[in-house]
């Protein structure tokens, strides 16, 4: 790989162009492979597409750029603390719009840290949700018969003793 390459250009699923630095791309295995692919390739003009929409990709790249220095070199406890605060701010976003897309993008791009963060944020949101709200947001079909539902309701009044 040529060391002169500092950033690559990628396309989102909407066809918009984005730049991502080499060190930030290292946070994701598929992005890293793509990077090597681009650099090894003789035809460097081809711009690879990432199947993530523009709105989500902006946030994913923002996360990568922020976390890259620490991921690549290790950091002190105070940096880790600051990064944690940044993560919390970063995750203050509209659920339906983007959080679940980020979760899926993190899964798709094999980004463990972002995936965990998105899961935790989603879980915190779910704490206050009703069963039907959860079915709606995850597109889950209620596969219990009405008898089974009645039985569940009897077995778990409020579904817990606490």
């Amino acid at each position: 790989m040529s060391s002169s390459v500092e950033a690559i250009t990628v396309l989102s699923s909407d066809g918009d162009e984005f730049k991502i630095t080499v060190s930030a791309a290292k946070l994701s295995k598929p992005l890293n492979w793509m990077l090597e692919d681009v650099c090894f390739s003789d035809d460097c003009d081809e711009v690879p597409t990432i199947e993530v929409n523009s709105k989500t990709l902006v946030k994913v790249i923002e996360y990568c750029e922020k976390h890259a220095p620490r991921a690549n070199s290790g950091a002190s406890d105070s940096d880790a603390e600051e990064l944690k605060k940044w993560d919390i701010e970063f995750m203050k976003m509209d659920v339906k719009d983007i959080l679940f897309h980020i979760l899926m993008a993190a899964n798709y791009l094999h980004m463990e840290g972002l995936y965990d963060l998105a899961c935790q944020t989603a879980a915190d949101l779910m704490k206050g949700m009703t069963v039907s709200q959860i079915r709606k947001i995850f597109h889950i079909k209620n596969d219990f018969s009405s008898e089974e539902q009645e039985q569940l309701r009897r077995q778990h009044p409020g579904c817990s003793f606490d």
Binding site: A122, V131, I140, K141, C159, S160
Partner: peptide, 17 residues
């Protein structure tokens, strides 16, 4: 996502599916 939730909350989500 569910694995990030406390036991108490999860018990209520048994009826999701």
């Amino acid at each position: 996502v569910l694995s990030h939730l406390p036991v108490k909350t999860l018990l209520g989500f048994k009826c999701v599916s």
